[in-house]
Nucleic acid binder design. Structure first.
Lengths: 350, 350
DNA sequence: CTGAAAGCGCTTACAG
DNA sequence: CTGAAAGCGCTTACAG
């Protein structure tokens, strides 16, 4: 039995034969923007479907100028975001007929990261590059790629928004909704731990928080807004400051999960019980959100949809950019309710 | 400038020309176990090096029976291990001229995971499969692959050790060393939280702990050995049991990081300060080890070396197995010292 | 042990 | 709008 030689995979010739056209025409039907009549195109696509034909990427790559390689650049992960992203990106790449090459953006062997990127591009002839946070905001890298005319897509960038297409979620809406959720649970004394101040999405999250509070006619004392920069460390000291206040908040909204996690750790240190004495929410829904005790209520970004959209943009050559018009693709977020928030309107369970 | 057309990548023809042989001979020099004289082989390899020639995987794939695709099967990650592993496996794959296809092993669309594996194998014509924990111990999958004669390599398997080559670290030695470390810090009352009892490496870790204790003439009360199964939950209740004891341990060795993390969370709950009142150590060095407070002292597995070894085995066709001889490749582990252990021989810092 | 020829499955010019 | 030919860079038989 082993691999059945009879049901060999259909090739372009099989499709051509079934559709009654030449191989060339099949190629045309499969490529966007090629001159082909609607009628033949329909016929060919029908045959493609009937045979369940999938183009052979290797053959395609060998004969075309495109490499069907796409590069994912990241910086040394200190959280699980990168790993989670790559898993989804790998899936999306396969679906769209690309191979994903992910590489750490760092110097090595005395060579600058920029030089290594050039080498990667030359070695593999990348069709496009994907940039995820925080690399998507690296001005030097951005302009280098631009200058080399290497197309790229970004995920949740904060700067130079017109420089490339990008996909993101609406941070403002998500933060607004999360704040409203807290308020609905009866919280009125809510503190906020900021993300890195230079980043637009930090500001959006903060603004969403602020506006939701204001819409509910709730005031936010100045000391309830604590600086942070998305790291565990910064979250820990922000929480520390908050806990030393004479009137503590009943809820803390941290601009990401790492800082929320640090807040909970710090609460433990102060003998503050979460969620009985204090509710904590985060943002991102990384693995850590599930691993901590209590499990964290947070905002989920649809990494699978994001990857899919990114690869779709690459596959369809939609990567040009005039540097002026905004090419923004916003995907839906989701509130994930877990155990780190107490409903003040009900009697405590303990 | 753009992409310089002059320095095109060298092809097999360039190498052949430089070495003064035919393309065929170059192929032979590059393939293991092919009939070629030492002399010509040396000459060709020199030319390969001189030109910095890298075979074109696509061309290779198109013309050969090998697909140069290797599949990595995993089950839905509830920690960051999978993501971390994939990042390294991706790097190693590229280095060895393979493309990594990673897929979740799960049912979907009403189809069994086994069926989906078959489909993956057929669709992509995988050369080999990589199985990581805990999938590497899935008997059904193991025998299915064996039956299909699909070669596979495993990482840290616990069962049917002769069924395939595998790479691992020495769990026994690592646990022994970690225990000795604790003892060197002055600890004598050390508890152990077990991994899943059916797994050999759980037992190895436990035995390493036990033997180190015995070698130091330290006794371990029965209640100091708590059952667990590698999940956060199980670690939490194990710690809970330990903390309710009248004479608590001064140190707890959890068989993995997730359970160690739960132990620390539980300690917080009991008002026990880590490391002042209690030292905690884990195993694996996953991201979570750095993210918690205090950061966890643990054992690191060299995921990069493991991936490299796995791909090397695949590349060199070393995947046969007679089902009887053990093909075990043991890589070095490392103790990572962080902040979760107190040295009882010095004055406490606080 | 070594080489000339054919072919893998596509796409790129080039014609019509 | 459509097709016949050539070629991408390798490897697989087949000879010698």
């Amino acid at each position: 039995m082993s691999t059945s030689d009879k049901n060999k995979k259909p090739t372009i010739k099989d499709v051509a034969a079934l559709a009654g056209v030449s191989a060339m025409t099949v190629t045309r039907a499969l490529q966007p923007n090629s001159s082909i009549s609607e009628k033949t195109k329909t016929k060919v696509l029908w045959a493609v479907k009937a045979l369940n034909y999938k183009p052979n990427i290797s053959a395609r790559r060998l004969s075309s100028s495109r490499s069907y390689f796409v590069g994912l650049l990241y910086i040394k992960p200190d959280g699980s975001y990168v790993g989670e992203f790559i898993i989804d990106a790998l899936k999306a790449s396969r679906k769209h007929g690309f191979h994903l090459i992910s590489e750490e953006y760092s110097s090595s062997g005395g060579m600058s990261p920029l030089y290594l990127v050039d080498k990667l591009i030359e070695d593999t002839n990348l069709d496009a590059v994907i940039l995820i946070p925080p690399l998507c905001d690296d001005l030097e890298l951005l302009h280098h790629l631009k200058h080399k005319e290497m197309p790229f897509v970004r995920v949740s960038p904060n700067v130079e928004l017109t420089l490339s297409p990008f996909v993101c979620i609406n941070d403002y809406d998500a933060a607004y909704e999360m704040t409203q959720f807290l308020i609905n649970q009866g919280h009125t004394q809510i503190a906020f731990i900021q993300g890195a101040s230079s980043l637009k999405n930090s500001l959006s999250r903060q603004q969403g928080f602020l506006d939701a509070m204001q819409a509910n006619e709730l005031s936010v004392p100045a000391e309830f807004i604590q600086p942070g920069n998305f790291t565990y460390q910064s979250g820990f000291s922000a929480a520390h400051n908050l806990f030393e206040l004479t009137n503590r908040p009943t809820a803390i909204f941290a601009a990401n999960d790492d800082m929320a996690s640090a807040t909970i750790a710090c609460a433990h240190k102060f003998g503050i019980t979460v969620p009985d004495d204090l509710s904590v929410v985060g943002f991102d829904n990384t693995y850590i959100a599930k691993q901590m005790w209590p499990a964290l209520t947070t905002v989920e970004q649809p990494l699978d949809l994001i990857s899919d959209k990114v690869l779709e943009l690459i596959a369809h050559h939609d990567l040009s950019s005039d540097g002026e018009t905004l090419q923004k693709f916003e995907l839906p977020f989701k509130l994930i309710e877990r155990d780190s928030v107490r409903n003040l309107k009900t009697v405590p369970s303990s």
